[in-house]
Design a protein around this nucleic acid. Sequence first.
DNA 1: ACAGATTGTTAACAGATCTTAAACGGCTCG
DNA 2: CGAGCCGTTTAAGATCTGTTAACAATCTGT
Lengths: 236, 236
Amino acid sequence: MKPRILLVEDETDLGNVVRQYLEMEMPEFQVDWVNNGRAAYERLKTRQTHYQIALIDVSMPEMDGFELAEKIVQLGLNLPFLFLTARNEKSDRLYGLKIGADDYISKPFDIDELVLRIRNILKRNAGVVIAADNRSAIAREDVIFYKETLKLVIKNTNEIDLTPREAELLDYLFRNENRVLKREEILTQLWGQNDYFLGRSLDVFISRLRKHLNDSDFISIDNVYGVGFVFQVRRK
Amino acid sequence: MKPRILLVEDETDLGNVVRQYLEMEMPEFQVDWVNNGRAAYERLKTRQTHYQIALIDVSMPEMDGFELAEKIVQLGLNLPFLFLTARNEKSDRLYGLKIGADDYISKPFDIDELVLRIRNILKRNAGVVIAADNRSAIAREDVIFYKETLKLVIKNTNEIDLTPREAELLDYLFRNENRVLKREEILTQLWGQNDYFLGRSLDVFISRLRKHLNDSDFISIDNVYGVGFVFQVRRK
DNA sequence: ACAGATTGTTAACAGATCTTAAACGGCTCG
DNA sequence: CGAGCCGTTTAAGATCTGTTAACAATCTGT
């Protein structure tokens, strides 16, 4: 199952913008947006879904952000959280940090900075390391490729261990998706030379990767006869 | 030994003030202050002393803060760091966060806020630490590791005595749980160098730790062929 | 449609890498 | 000085991986 981010924000416009931006910038996460503290609390209480991090607006009707955060701590969920708020008084900031916030970000905030801060918090906390530079994990539609752990996850269920060479080739394909790659290009890039036997070797790896990618509805490796291959990533 | 904080700051006055204040507010930590990036790098390169967090000034002569931080990431130390800086341009802030900073704090900063932010970062990073009668311990699921007394307790029944080297390696693994650790990283950090025989030695210790951890249902040490190891901590 | 070229798939092999037990040798401490 | 501990080295066996081989399937120009 995709790791999840919980966004708690009562302003409809801002909530929508942030959710959309996060899903675009961090496609390997699902963003759940709720518009009040109580709804967030209900979700967290019954650990039905497990969240990686919570982004909480301080000023909300009914149950405000501070109150929600305190409940999170009380519940003993080890859930990182940060505040997104228009209130930038020192006392508020200190209070937020004191109850354990991993960050306290004042509106208007830079959304790129928010993404980076979230990534850095998750990096320390979660098992799955996703670097900001997108080099260690690549997500496309129903496929996530963790380059460092040599793991390939399809439809969030199917977890496959790759060999180093398989991973290297797959990485190369991802970095050149949707364009025709000549055999010669691939061989000189990955094997350093280009002869008949290495060509056959490449075919074997292509075959293995195809088998691995069988369960994906969006990704396939297509042959261009006499030329090379195309790593096709279809969009939804 | 007291856990340590590394402060890298070239301005003498500020360095002194911050160090004194931190030691007053966080007496359980020892604060080591060095006044340039190169000195900090030398300390971190081989693992003479182990730090919990690094506070880094961006503007320094010789090796600047960004450069130092990049080296920290390259070395594969899982060391949290944050920037203390007078530069508050958006591009600088984004760059700092991009290379993995846990925070980017602009001077003049509120020292109480700094302390809170440091505490929150450490809280997440250290996991459940039991500080009873000054024996520091790391607890994860069904395993408790008392690193001062070199004892490992599994399921509250099985008590195992570790050798110093075993404990050192296990400590390193705990600090880097759920990440791929390259053989080279481990060897340069723990043994100070990396050659064939030390590699064999590492394998032997891994094997011994595995035997010790056999009774845990949650922790295992997995190999990534041709790369290194992953210290897997599964959650309930 | 046919032949040759290219590509696809599977199995087998050899070398690299990893695992583990056991032997070794330096060190400490009584 | 002898026993015990501990890190290192050795060595044998297990496992993993990239390559090769063999054969099947597909493509292309004629």
